[in-house]
Simulated assay, not measured.
Amino acid sequence: MPVFTPLTALLSQLADGLAPLAGDSAMAAAIVAFTLCVRLALHPLARAAARGERVRTRLAPRVAELNARYKGDPQRMRQAVTELYAKEGVSPITGCLPSLLQLPVFAVMYHLFSGSGGALRQHALAGAPLGGHWLDAVRAGGVCGPQGLVYLAVFAVIAAVAAWTYRRARGTAAQAAPLPDAPGAAGLAKFLPLLSFGTLITAALLPLATGLYLATTTTWTAVERALLHRTPNEAVPAPGTVASTK
């Protein structure tokens, strides 16, 4: 399709430029480089999301106080919480934007390397076709065969990042301000951290190229979040008090 032609040309040019270093795996290196460029472009949104997360954590005691004060008036409680967040200049949807904006890139990457019409599916990473699937590699040489080892390496990176993300998400969920009187919010908060392991399942079912994209972008996310949240913890105000701001 014409809409995919510019990205096909861009990845091919990147692969040509990386060929002296990456050899036959130049296209795989181009996918990594392209993914890093996309994430770099989205970094300002990630910084805004990190700020919003810190603010919501700092405001958690005040949100709990509002929940108690307007327990019998859910509408007034939601309004009060919304006003509180508005004063701090944060929005609940800010943290979702970096992930949502990656979905079109993920869809395009899948199209370019899947099916008989995949324009770039003939390329390989250490002998494993980028348009191939994990089960194909297992049938070709077993789980620990030459191609299977490539998939295991990608899975290992994704699993390690998912485990780190899971532990961190559980800690963040325990500190963050709850959604005001949202049905099932408690159960959802427990379930959401498990979604980090869904990336591993996705990588096992989709072409190797998309698994490589997922491994790269999730690793970037983990490093980015670690760096953005490395600042000293802000003092959390006691209920009924107002946090000082500079």
Rank of each mutant, 00 (worst) to 15 (best):
P2D: 06
V3Y: 07
T8M: 02
L11V: 09
S12K: 11
L14D: 07
D16S: 15
A19K: 15
G23Y: 13
D24I: 08
A30S: 14
T35P: 13
L40S: 13
R62N: 05
V63M: 07
E65C: 06
Y70M: 06
D73H: 14
Q79A: 14
Q79E: 14
V81N: 02
E83G: 10
E83L: 15
A86Y: 02
K87G: 12
E88Q: 08
G95L: 03
Q102Y: 09
L103H: 08
L103C: 06
A107I: 15
G115H: 07
Q122E: 13
A126R: 04
L135T: 04
L135F: 02
A140T: 03
Q147H: 00
G148D: 03
Y151E: 01
L152V: 01
V154K: 00
A156N: 06
A156P: 04
A159T: 07
A159P: 01
A160T: 05
R167F: 11
A169T: 13
R170I: 12
A173V: 07
P178S: 07
D181L: 05
G184L: 09
F191P: 02
F191Y: 05
L192Q: 05
A204N: 06
L208C: 06
W220F: 15
V223R: 04
E224F: 02
A226T: 13
R230P: 04
V236G: 02
P237N: 11
G240F: 09
S244H: 08
